[in-house]
Amino acid sequence: MDYNFHWRPVFKALPDLLQAALLTLEVAAISMILGVLIGLGLSLIRIHMKGPVMWLASIWVELARNTPALLQLFFFGFGLGAFGIHFSPYLIVLMGLTFNNAGYLAENFRGGFGAVPDTQIRAARSLGMTAFQTYTRIVIPQVLRIVYYPMTNQMVWAVLMSSLGMLVGFRELSGETQFFASRTFRIFEYFAVTAVIYYIIVKIILGASRLLAMRLFRY
């Protein structure tokens, strides 16, 4: 083994990498919030509606779940570009991740809604609650508990998936690493440090979600 590791350039770039890691977290978090909202809508549409709207929601969910995330990203990047619609790399990654998150979360939510018995909804309605009240006070709190763990997983996935941004020119953690690595050719060193940063981010997310769960689901 006559390879000399050079870690100094990596440590010099560390502040930039950490800055990029924040961008990774930001895009993952925003895509997650949007994904939860859209996923909730998609799952409710698939449960309660019929006809074209339901088909569209189903097509969204199945496409998101059954094609590679990278292909979805390419579609938002290059595919829409063919129509003359151009987005910044940030938006491409955000839309790709949101599309994917919404699809996966919709399926989780559907399972969650299925687990709340119909009798509870009818009981709430006969107590005089409106449909909206029934959903926000009876159904959603129970569903949240069921989908909490899958949602945490999806958040981790969103962070890991955002690394695909480096292939569409987005300078989040991976893209930034790629940028530095290609200037110095210290590819291994840079990506090793990046791997460690990702690992730490994932552990922080899991730890935070566990703490939050202890507060949310005390009783």
Binding site: V156, L160, M161, S163, L164, M166, L167, S174, I187, F188, F191, A192, T194, A195, Y198, Y199, V202, K203
Partner: peptide, 11 residues
């Protein structure tokens, strides 16, 4: 499971 696959591949 905690490091993106793409990083694992490049590494």
């Amino acid at each position: 499971r905690s490091v993106p696959l793409i990083i694992q591949l490049v590494l």
